[in-house]
């Protein structure tokens, strides 16, 4: 078992997350795609720590920061969903295209 196995799994999770984030119409499902991508990133960070620089704990601190970002991004995303819903009574990305073009 080597570094490449973990990184390939992380890349697969990122690919699945990209597919989900681009294909879903609902904002909440799009956020689940973003969470999956961050899941892949989190696994990759811990794998890098273990195989490339295991002697200090800084890689683990990086992983904790990634997890913090995951939580903040989810919370802000849900607040945006609520704000968009209150303004326009919809929860899909297709309807929220006021600033497009």
């Amino acid at each position: 078992m080597s570094l490449e196995w973990f990184l390939l799994l992380g890349a697969a999770l990122i690919g699945i997350g990209v597919w989900g984030a681009l294909s879903q119409m609902s904002i909440v499902m799009l956020m689940m795609g973003l969470e999956l991508m961050l899941n892949g990133v989190l696994l990759s960070v811990v794998a890098f720590w273990y195989y490339v620089a295991p002697d200090s704990a800084k890689g683990q601190v990086f992983a904790i920061i990634v997890m913090t970002l995951m939580a903040v991004e989810a919370a802000l995303g849900f607040a945006i969903v609520i704000a968009v819903y209150r303004g326009k009574m919809l929860d899909t990305v297709d309807g929220a295209g006021d600033l497009k073009g």
Partner: peptide, 27 residues
């Protein structure tokens, strides 16, 4: 979306497999 997902995975996988990672011997 499916094409974008597959392309993302293929690009990342090719970078992962081609790069010579500085794997450390430390514990």
């Amino acid at each position: 979306a499916a094409a974008a997902g597959i392309v993302t995975f293929l690009v990342l996988a090719s970078v992962i497999l081609v790069t010579d990672w500085p794997v450390s011997e430390a514990n």
